[in-house]
Write a protein that binds this DNA or RNA. Sequence first.
RNA 1: GGCCCGUUCGUCUAGCGGUUUAGGACACCGCCCUCUCAAGGCGGAGGUCACGGGUUCGAAUCCCGUACGGGCUACCA
Length: 491
Amino acid sequence: MSNQTPIRVRFAPSPTGNLHIGGARTAIYNWAFAHANEGTFVLRIEDTDPLRSSAENTAQIIRSLRWLGLNWDEGPETGGELGPYLQTERFDTYDKALARLQERGNAYPCFCAPEELHNKREAALAAKQNPVYDRCCRDIDPDEAQQRIVAGEPHTWRLKIPLDRGAISFDDTVYGTVTVPLEQLDDFILVRSDGKPTYNFVVCVDDALMQISHVIRGDDHLSNTPKQILVYEALGYPTPQFAHLSMILGSDGKRLSKRHGATSVEAYQEAGYLPEALVNYLALLGWSLDGETTIIDADTLKTQFSLDRISKSPAVFDEKKLDWVNQSYLKELGSAGFVDAWLPYLEADGLATAAKVAEKRSWFEDIYPLVVERVHTLSEINPLVNYLFGETVSLDEKSVEKCLAGEGTGELLESITALLQDENLKWEHEALDTALRGLAEQRDIKPKIVFQALRVATSGNMVSPPLLESLELLGREVTLARLEAAKPFAG
RNA sequence: GGCCCGUUCGUCUAGCGGUUUAGGACACCGCCCUCUCAAGGCGGAGGUCACGGGUUCGAAUCCCGUACGGGCUACCA
C-alpha cells in the first residue's frame, strides 16, 4: 500500500437505543479495516437528537463495543486530537462550518414557513412530480435577506448546490459507480430555524474535520451520499472514500427487528454467546475470507479483512449458524476459560458463588468436557448440569416410566446399590464402568438397561451428560442417597 | 410518483467469459461410533445461478429490459 493519506475510519452510532446486530457488524468492519491497514478507528456518538438520544444508551453502546473487543483509538473515554467525539459537544464546530459556507457563498437563508413547504410538497406529490424544494429563497437579494434576519424573521440555512452539473457520481467500494441525476437533489436544509444543524450537514463536517478517509456505513445512507458529497465540495474539503453495507434481515427476509427475537448485542451477551463468536459470525454476514473458512478469529480479521470482499446483497441472520460458531469457540476455551465464562451464570442461578468456584475449582473444571459439546451457549449449561448440584434430584416422570418402572428394576437398583457401596470399588469412571458392565453380564441384561436405570435415578432424566463421569462428580454418598430415593419409583 | 441499489442450494457464501457435471459452511437426511443426548467420522439430498432478450465460438459471470425486494425523496438520524 502506498497511500499518502493515513487510513482513518469511524463508527458513528446514534444513541437512540442499544447497540444493534447491524450496528455491531458495521463497527466490526470499520475496526477490522483500520487494523488491517494500520489505520485509526474513531468512535463518534451522533447524539444531536435530544428526544431520542440518551446518555444511558451511549453508555450501553460503549459497553457493548468494549465487550465485543472493538476498541477504538479515538473517541469517548479514550480521547484524541480531533475531538470532542460527541456531537452535542460540537455545536460551535457546526456554527463555524456554516460560517465557512456563508463566506464561500454556498449557503443561503430560507424564510419559507414549514407548512408552506409541506403544502408545496404535497402538491408536487399529487401531481406525480418530484417533490424538491423550488429554491424560491435562493435568489433573494443578500442585503434584503440580511435585513430580514436582523429583524428576527425565522429562517433556515440551505445548501446552494451547483446547478450546472448533470449528475453527481461517486465510486463506492462495495457498489461501484453510483450516479444520481442532479434534479433529484435539492437545496436541502443545513441548519434548522432553531439553529440546530441537520444530520447530512454535521456528518460531513465531522468526517471532514476528523480526517476520515473511508466512510463504511449502512446502505440506508447510499442515497444520501451525493448530497453529502455536495457538502464536502461546498466546504472545500476532500471527499472520503465510501463503502456501503447491505442490511441484515430476519429469517422472514424482512429488516431485522424485535419481532425476530434478540437484536441487541447485549441480548446475545446475556444469552451466553462469546464475544469472539459473535464477532466471527457477524463478520461473515456479508463478507468472506475465501468462501471456505468459517472460523475466523479476531487476529485473522485484523490482518486479512478487506473491503473488496464485501457482498452487495442483504444477508439473513441465522441463529442456528451463530450457535454452531459459538460452540466451536466454546470448544476452544479450555476448562479454565470455560469456568470463568460460566461463573456469572452460576451466580445468577444461585448454583454457586465465586468463592465456592474458587474453592472447588477442579470439580467445576471437570464439568467442562462433559458439557462443552452439548451446549451452544453459556446459558444452556445450568439446565444441563443442574443435577450435579445438591443432595437430591427430582425425577422426570417420563424417564421414570421408561427406565425405572419396568418389572425387576427395583431389584436391579438394589444390586447396583450393593455394588456401589463396596468400599473396594474405586470411585472413578473407568472402574465404575467395568463394575456396572460386570453386573449387567451377571444378570444377563444389556448394559444399557443398567446404565439407563442408574442415570434416571441419579440425574433424574433419561438424557444426561455421560453417566459415569457424572457419578464421579456426584460422589459415592450422594449417588447412594439418590439411588435410595429413587427405589420407591422402581418397578 | 421520481431516483438509487440489490437478486447463486432453506440460510451464509465461493465464483470476476472457458479449469464448473456451480465449490464450501450452517441446517436437513442416512450410516458408523456409542451408557442416553451430544460431539466426531463417512455419505446423501438440495441450486433450470429471479425471469426474458441480446453480445460471444462460449455467460452465473458482459449489455438491455421485466419482475420482485430494499433505500432515499423531512426543519429524523
